[in-house]
Structure formats: C-alpha cells, structure tokens
Amino acid sequence: MKPAPFHLETPQSLEECVALLAEHGDEAKILAGGQSLVPLMNLRLAQPSVLLDIGGLKALNFVEENEQSFRIGAITRLRDLERDANFAKSQPLLAEALPHIGHTQIRNRTTVGGSIAHADPAAELPAVLLACGGTVKAVGPNGERKISADNFFHSYFSTDLEEDEAIAEIELPRWKPACGWSIQEISRRHGDFALIGIACCVTCDDEGVVTDANAAFFGVGEAPHLVESASSLVGTKADDETLHQVAEATAAELDPPTDIHVSAEYRKHVGGVLARRALSIAYQRATGNIT
C-alpha cells in the first residue's frame, strides 16, 4: 500500500475538526479534496497518522452573496463553481482561473479551502484572492478570525494558519461593474502548474481613467506576490506607453527563482509581457470595450 497507516476520522462539524486538531497536534491533517495531500502521502512525503475528512461537511459547501460581500465555503468543489452559470457573472476573475487549475477530474475533487490552505506558490486561487483583496475566515479553539490575503500567505506551502486552525470560508469583495479582470499564465502543458502567471483587476471611472489596479503574480517565488508596478496605471487611460512602462517596471520588480523548469531571467521577462497583456485586457473589460 502506498500511504503509511493512518486513522480516518470524519468530524461532524468544523468545531469538532478543530478540537481533534488540537488533540492530535502535528500528527493530524485535514483531508479536503485530497488532490494535493494524497499524492504527498502516496510518495510518503507526508505521513499523518490521523486524517480528518471534512469533505462531507455540507455546512461548508456554499456560495453566498449579500450587500457587502461574496463568500465561498471551504469545501466547495471547483467543478461546482464552474458549472454554476451565475458564478462567472458574480466573480469573473476567480471563474476565469478555474479552467487553468489541473484537469476536470482534479477539479471534481479540489476544494476552495484546500487550494488556499495548501498555498502552493504556483497556484492560481491564492493569487486571485490577493488580487481581489479577499480574506480567509479561520476557525480555531478560541473561535473565529479573519485574515486578509496579504497577511495570509507566508512562504512555500506555509500560511498564517496555526496548527489547530481550519479554514471555514473565503470572502471576496462584491464585484464592481466598473472592474475589469484578466488571468494569464504560461505552463508547459494545459493543466500543469504555471511556470509564471498573473491575476489582475483594473477599475475605471466614467471617463475611462483608471482609479485602481491590482496585480498578483504566482509562480514567482515563495508566495503569491502583489506587484507595486500596477499602481502606476492609476490616473492614466492605460495607453500603450503606460502599459509598456508598467511591463518594464514589473520585470524589474519581480525577483523569481531559477528552477529545473526555467530561469529567473525568463520569468522576469515573461512577467513583464504577461503584465502588459493582462492589464490591457482588464482595462478594456473595465471600459466595456471587450467582455
């Protein structure tokens, strides 16, 4: 058998799950979609002795929009979001990210909370959460707390979550009609993790002048990274000259690693190209020139 022996528990609530995490310490791991954890267990890179299967917790499987915010429960499966025709209208950036994540069979199982908690630096959803200015709601033995995306992702596969905390839901701002979006990435084959990618939102006023621009890169280092260069779009109409400058500033700002796939220079260069491409598309969407 591939994985080391473990005991499977099925807590009936997230509170029970958190109590079990506190009881077992680092021996226990939450099992959500299993699409990252189980490969690690099959390779015996992870050998938890207790698995807490939260996949059946219906209370964590929801999409809810109200006046202030848009919330997605931790065990909501990516494929269910893809199938929901309204979702793409409510959260177009996250919706556009979904087909980039693995394959249909992977998305049938992958959960929103699992992808955020796993915090792969090349993963799409953490960057989307960062670009949108979202938050993570975590539950621990002392109750709930909210962590903004820019404080949540610390380093490779490491987050602000304590050992005995679990993600209950993520929250995104409601999408504004004047906000355009784009996600662009380069990967070896469709569905592979990105070598480098960008998720961005651009907001305009009635005159087509940019009032806000956020761009988060993934696959550029230890965690998703919000670039400062995007802010020089503010006050402009994203003309070619400005976009060109932003691309150069982005390439200069990124400090990505060299790995077995590509060099740091490649990532910096492509980062600039993707920034220009993504911000231009987002701007055109914000001004209603393309949808």
């Binding site: 499977l8 099992l31 299993g34 699409q35 189980v38 490969p39 390779l43 394959h103 249909t104 199982r109």
Partner: peptide
Amino acid sequence: EQGSCGACTVLVDGSAIRSCLTFASQ
C-alpha cells in the same frame, strides 16, 4: 499514483475522479 496520468479514472456518483487519490474508506 499521484494524480498525473489519469489511467485510474473512475466515476464516483457520476463524477470522473482519480481513484488513486481517494480512499475507499471515504
């Protein structure tokens, strides 16, 4: 046995999934 090749794909409740990444006990 790590989710990459798809040879182990089966349907569970109508959804195609990797049977190498799901435990029977679940």
